[in-house]
Amino acid sequence: MFKKVIATTLCIAMSAVVLAGCGSKAGASYPSEDIEVIVPKAAGGGTDTSSRGLLTYMEKNMEGLKFNVTNNSDGGGITGMATTAAADPDGYTLGAVTVELDMFCFQGKSDLTYESFDSIAMPIAAPAALIVQADAPYNSIEEFVAYCKENPEAVQIGNSGAGAIWDIATYLFEDEYAVSATHVPYPNGTADIAAALTGGHIDATLADPSSFMTQIQAGTLKALGVMSEERTTLLPEVPTFKEEGHDLVVRAWAALVAPKGMKEEDLTALRDAAKKALESDECKEYFESQGIEPVAFIGTDADKIMEEDYAMYKKVFETHDFAE
């Protein structure tokens, strides 16, 4: 009995090894074989959806390009990102990285930084939006700030977990306007924040507006401001914090990257394919159908965003202690 079990297992294991061994990298032009892409988040989330969307449309824009996506969300994404960074920079292992890359190094969770990678493209950078109940007495950022000042510590602002990006957005908001609020974490994600906000259990949130669009359109919630460089296409009527004279930019991004050291010409080829993909209308339509505002930061533009955010989070983590 047990022999049979062992034999079956071995057979499967060995055939897998044989199959994996097939194919060599002898081809002349890049890419001569399938490229593995490691997505450090679970299948179906924003990072996964936007990465897969970008890859699908890149395949259409470059001859012989074929991606195989694997998801590895171990350790909140650290494992996946570390695997990409440690891979051979031959262009056959790429990966996605997320905004957490700029935070993990300050939280003592990993040594990786944006400098371990070369960016190909960043298709998603969701900003934090200040969202409140539609019937609330405040109708602008200034009025909300005034309300916070009248009720110190009493205003409850929802986030998706202490020390996570939307919590940091709330800290930055408090610092900028010299107010203080109660941070209420909803660690299962923005859907729970939306339910709590709609149900009137909290007063506001600073989070990616895409999960709140149905409620905003239905008139139960309203957005007062967006923490982005320019107005978002999701909420074209809503001013940015920058317009009001406050330099607050918090964005949840994900980017397709290569481990540092890839051949410059291959990297350029991938960046060109990504640029063409992200600028095509069908790709934009796909992103919008998934409730994601498509952006297109290619190569060094994406590196710049990662670098800027790194500097910002460095400052945040030096001045705040989130472990408490």
Binding site: S73, D74, I78, A164
Partner: peptide, 20 residues
């Protein structure tokens, strides 16, 4: 794993796998 409420680590023993 990482306590979702506070971000502190519990019973992780330095393992990346256990963090999540």
């Amino acid at each position: 794993g990482i306590d979702a409420m506070t971000g502190s680590m519990r019973f992780v023993f330095g393992s990346t796998y256990l963090m999540g």
